[in-house]
Amino acid sequence: MIPTQGKKQEDLLILLEEAQNKLGYLPEELMAELAKSLDMSISDVYGVATFYSFLSTKPQGRNVIRICKCLPCLLKNAQAIIESVERETGIKPGETAPDGKFSFELTNCIGACDEAPAMMLNNEVHVNLTPGKISQILKACK
């Protein structure tokens, strides 16, 4: 699924990232294939894939919402933002909507603490969130 000629174990993360960008998630067959060609165990590949919040082992929705769950954002009431995303999308953190429109995840700090609470929608950062802003932003999603 992705070329691995001449690749070594230390290239694993780059290869996983490549696959994630290309396929939107990391299917088990791909991880098994990578393990084989890099001479690693499947569990080690799976370990790396599940360690990073930006790698996903399940198919993702068209839009991926990532709300920051670290302390500065929580102090600025990220909980209210989380709840408003749940209301708007009908899904909870870790889930993907049945129509495939949204995936919702909590993530570690995304470096926007000075404008907390913050989130990433696909590759864009949104800051100073309020429940009102959330419904606007999500309405604009296809």
Binding site: M31, I42, S43, D44, Y46, G47, F51, T57
Partner: peptide, 19 residues
């Protein structure tokens, strides 16, 4: 090479293949 460590933080776990 049966075991590996997967997930992160409090959820870390010794797993076999895809858990």
């Amino acid at each position: 090479r049966v075991f590996g460590i997967a997930y992160r933080g409090f959820d870390s776990k010794v797993v076999v293949d895809f858990d």
